[in-house]
Design a protein around this nucleic acid. Structure first.
Length: 654
RNA sequence: GGCGGCAUAGCUCAGCUGGCUAGAGUACUCGGUUCAUACCCGAUUGGUCGUUGGUUCGAAUCCAACUGCCGCUACCA
């Protein structure tokens, strides 16, 4: 057993949605950098990633593809593993929720919680409308009938297991408000105000509506829903509740759960509660980072398309992709992505600064000393420069401890900039002409030291280049930071080297990328935020800008004239009216937020325009099958948009 | 509607608990250099620190209101 301190870091387990994109890469690359950094700092690191493979969606998609759910996810998992291999992700374990050991452990966890009383069987009691497949409470019923279709309902009770989330409300509140558990701290308020203080309700943790999941061991009508199945991967991966839980004993609690911000809620409320119920320690930290957005500027969408990590890595190199993600994206906030930003970043930092510095230094070392370089007589610029080299490690440590990965890289590149400046200050070519060989020797040696130390510090972030640079320096890349200080290497025998990072012509690349994008229309420009636990996955992303649409897109909206035949207030609601409208022969129920401007009486008999093909939504428990067009005037006054003269109901509007 | 966050150079952002002529990177312009990947170094340009009040000897920094953007949420539709 080693006495090393441990460090357990996790990505979320990704939901196989079919397209792995740069957003998945971001979380994973960040974790990888942290994991590598901690390893090199002497920690015994365990880095976990994986996939969340159960659920109704997978079941359905597999069915429509004509394969079994397992076959369906297998293909996607192969794909993501290739991606991680390509990006040099150094995970220690890849967990799949379909792994047998996970399934078994989840069943045990569920059973344990059931036996301790934190999971109990109950049901959604209520009136059930069979054709609508919907439950209604007494208060929702209209005249004792289904508010949706008006048919009779039957008293039913659907069985379901619940987790006593409410019981842990106080402890979770403390965890969030009194410790640094959740970061960035701005998320804490959202969680506390919106959920905890609003009252946590017990959580339905089983389903009978689909089969593709972990069965409840003592009640096989039920499968265990995503919460317990997916979240507990963080402990089952370590062998929790298995025959061998030595890893669990060693690494738990996790040092860092990293995730994108949309799943913070599950990790900061539900997951700690499950652990509390199990009597296990909660993780030390959960961090919700921002999203990578596309299309913040005038870049055409087709250019924004090229965010396929496979294409980027192939064309620009893994280190470029990793560098961009780690350096350009301010950790914790959203940022924009465009091909232009990407190319500019790798051009200026990697090609101009690091690549060029290495090349010119090595060229001088060979030209002046045939590659054999050792310390010489200091110049007047040496002392300051050496101080900077020696300050690097501590500065990077400090930033990494605060998870400021982009700032850590910025700090390393400060030294690289200082080295370029040092060359201008000392003018080695002049020293050579003047025959000041001792000073020249000192200058080149110091430069090599600066390159060595900064490259050493870059090793967790870039996985290919550091080894190449060390090789050119005549050294082997170390696996720690012990020598990341000035003077640790006394002399050099350098080698010739190729260009490390070629410079890209921005215009040409943008054109090229657009061509590639054009050839691959399947990949759509979309915000990179798909690591999912089911619910968040269903959210559609909304376009930020008032974007122009084509006429075809507009015509997707079917607008029709409808005659209001009935109207009543919705109980418990200030704004809503429940309207019955006739569209030609058809009758529909539409709920509309116009009660403050129109009374039910004056609505009856009016002609209105409705969005006919709008997906139905439940408002106040009533299904609204369309939307009435209104204009919002001053003071929030709502005005109906209606035909100027009488037309038949059902008439199309265009 | 409720809660929260943010608004600093063309762009991306630093500016902690109030204090010297408001910073960095990038882009632009000019100059320098030649070891180097049309690179590097320097200089210049560029900001009423969202608006208006307040506290203070003094505010980008604290307080209030307003405007705008964003996030979460809700009986938004």
């Amino acid at each position: 057993m080693s006495a090393k301190p441990t460090y357990y870091i996790t990505t979320p387990i990704y939901y196989p949605s079919g397209k792995w994109h740069i957003g998945h890469c971001y979380t994973t690359v960040c974790c990888d950098a942290m994991a590598r950094y901690k390893r090199m700092s002497g920690y015994d690191v365990f880095y976990l990633t994986g996939t969340d493979e159960h659920g109704q969606k997978i079941e359905k998609r597999a069915e429509s593809s004509g394969v079994s759910p397992k076959e369906f996810v297998d293909a996607l998992v192969d794909n993501i593993k290739q991606l991680w291999e390509l990006l040099d992700i150094s995970y220690d374990k890849f967990i799949r929720t379909t792994d047998a050991y996970h399934v078994e452990a989840v069943q045990k966890i569920f059973k344990k919680l059931y036996e301790s009383g934190d999971i109990y069987k109950s049901g959604y009691k209520g009136k059930y409308c069979t054709p609508c497949e919907s439950f209604w409470t007494e208060s929702q019923l209209v005249g004792g009938k289904c508010p949706d279709c008006g048919r009779d309902v039957v008293e039913t009770e659907e069985e379901c297991y619940f987790f006593r989330l409410s019981k842990y409300s106080g402890r979770i509140r403390k965890l969030l408000t009194e410790t640094g558990f959740l970061e960035p701290s701005s998320r804490v308020n959202e969680m506390v105000n919106n959920f905890i203080d609003a009252g946590l309700e017990d959580l339905a943790v089983s389903r009978t509506s689909f089969k593709w999941g972990v069965p409840v061991s003592f009640d096989d009508k039920h499968v265990i829903y995503v919460w317990i199945d997916a979240l507990s991967n963080y402990i089952t991966a370590l062998g929790f509740m298995s025959d061998d839980d030595s890893l669990y004993k060693k690494y738990w609690p996790a040092d860092l759960h990293m995730m994108a911000k949309e799943i913070v809620r599950f990790h900061s409320i539900i997951w700690p509660a499950i652990l509390m119920a199990l009597g296990e320690p909660v993780p030390k930290k959960a961090y919700g980072h921002g999203w990578i957005l596309f299309g913040g500027d005038k870049m055409s969408k087709s250019k924004g398309n090229v965010v396929d990590p496979f294409i980027l890595a192939e064309r620009y190199g893994v280190d470029s992709v990793r560098y961009f993600l780690l350096r350009d994206i301010t950790f914790g906030t959203d940022s924009n992505y465009s091909s232009e930003i990407f190319i500019n970043r790798i051009n200026t930092d990697l090609a101009n600064d690091l690549g060029n510095l290495t090349k010119r230094t090595l060229a001088m070392s060979r030209q002046y000393f045939e590659g054999k370089v050792k310390k010489g007589t200091p110049t007047e610029f040496d002392a300051d420069f050496i101080l900077k080299i020696d300050a690097l490690k501590a500065g990077v440590d400090e930033r990494i401890d605060k998870l400021n990965i982009n700032r850590a890289l910025e700090f390393i590149f400060d030294l690289i900039g200082a080295a370029n400046k040092y060359i201008d200050n000392t003018k080695p070519w002049a020293l050579n002409k003047e025959g000041k060989t001792d000073e020249l020797s000192s200058v080149i040696y110091n430069l090599l030291e600066a390159i060595r130390v900064s490259t050493n510090m870059l090793a967790p972030f870039l996985t290919k280049t550091p080894a190449i640079i060390f090789d050119a320096l005549g050294l082997k890349l170390p696996s720690d930071f012990k020598n990341a200080k000035y003077g640790a290497v006394k002399s050099y025998q350098t080698k010739e080297t190729e260009t490390l990072f070629p410079r890209f012509d921005l215009k040409k690349e943008l054109d090229e990328l657009e061509k590639i994008a054009g050839a691959d229309k399947e990949i759509k420009a979309e915000p990179a935020k798909e690591q999912k636990i089911e619910k968040a996955a269903e959210k559609k992303e909304e376009k930020k800008v008032a974007e122009q649409i084509t006429i075809d897109e507009f015509f997707k909206t079917e607008l029709k004239v409808a005659l209001v035949t009935g109207a009543e207030r919705v109980a418990k609601s200030e704004k809503l009216l429940k309207l019955t409208v006739r569209i030609g022969e058809e009758e529909r129920t539409v709920v509309s937020g116009i009660a403050k401007s129109y009374s039910p009486e004056e609505m009856v008999g009016k002609s209105v325009v409705i969005v006919y093909n709008l997906k139905p939504a439940k408002l106040c428990g009533i299904e609204s099958q369309g939307m009435i067009l209104c204009a919002t005037g001053e003071n929030g006054k709502v005005v109906l948009v209606s035909p100027e003269t009488v037309v038949d109901s059902g008439a199309e509007v265009c």
